[in-house]
Design a protein around this nucleic acid. Structure first.
Length: 274
DNA sequence: GTTGAGCGTT
């Protein structure tokens, strides 16, 4: 069934599953929990000496969530921790923008003055003819804050009474990736697998939800859907959402989607923009 | 002294 992530083909005869079977798919996992179908409460799967024991009613048709060590949530290992930091940095990283179609008379001062209304610019330049010093009608700008860059790239610009174009310079674009964005809503497993081929997503942490991430040159927006029924359960999902997502493996992202849709109801669960 | 799609003298 596409709803489930298979970690093992069959449980043992006595209804047990080895923890190492789970950790093979979810590195760093220390156990499992599931939602009691009656009380809707989360409960831990009994773990004795590395062996997971089925609930009294058997493994059944329940969704099991992977547990990670509590004091280690954000720090499953050094590599992962630094990856998260890198993601945070990637979010803030700005890039030069090329500004085309400038009036011949526009100076760097004019340009700086215009763009400073959006935010602080680190660099503004207009390309000029080396001999004559006349403007070639295009230039570059780089902003301090990524938010400023987003603002600037998301609207048109009238500079000295002329509409100008602004975009990422060719030199800053990754040649193998399409520029246009594709939005994927309500991803099913097949779509997730397609997504998995693009690269590596480090984490889906509550703190990252709502943020635009740029990971290995791929823009990814991760957001939670609004709770459809009981908003108290939102806290639970945030608690549980410390799920490592490694698109190279794929399973983790799928499990995150399951987790989130279980709590918020099926529907929009993860929004991924490619 | 001109021009109007483009891609960065350091």
């Amino acid at each position: 069934m596409s709803e489930y992530i298979r970690v093992t083909k069959d449980e043992n005869d006595d209804g047990t599953v080895l923890l190492c079977t789970v950790t093979a798919q979810f590195p760093g996992a220390c156990g499992l929990r599931d939602r009691n179908p009656v009380s809707q409460c989360m409960r831990g799967v009994r773990l004795v000496e590395g062996i997971l024991h089925a609930p009294d009613a058997g493994w059944g048709n329940l969704v099991y969530v992977v547990n990670y060590p509590k004091d280690n949530k954000r720090n499953m290992d050094e590599t992962d921790a630094s990856s998260v930091v890198n993601v945070k940095r990637a979010v803030q990283k700005t890039s030069d923008l090329i500004v085309l179609g400038l009036p011949w008379t526009t100076t760097e001062q004019d340009l700086e003055e215009y763009f400073s209304t959006f935010g602080e610019a680190l660099m503004v330049q207009i390309k000029k003819d080396t001999k004559t010093g006349h403007s070639k009608g295009f230039g570059f700008v780089c902003f301090m804050e990524y938010e400023t860059q987003v603002k600037v790239t998301s609207q048109q610009h009238m500079i000295d009474e002329q509409w100008c174009d602004r975009k990422l310079p060719n030199s800053k674009q990754s040649p193998d990736k399409p520029l246009r964005s594709r939005k994927v809503f309500d991803m099913n497993e097949d779509e997730l697998w397609q997504f998995c081929q693009y690269g590596e997503v480090v984490d889906v942490l509550p703190s990252l939800c709502g943020e635009d991430l740029i990971i290995k040159g791929i823009s990814i927006h991760i957001s939670y859907a609004e709770p459809k029924h009981n908003s108290n359960r939102k806290k639970e999902v945030e608690d549980l959402a410390v799920i490592q997502v490694a698109l190279g493996i794929g399973f983790h992202l799928i499990s995150a989607v399951h987790l989130i849709s279980n709590v918020y109801g099926t529907g929009t669960s993860l929004k991924v923009v490619l």
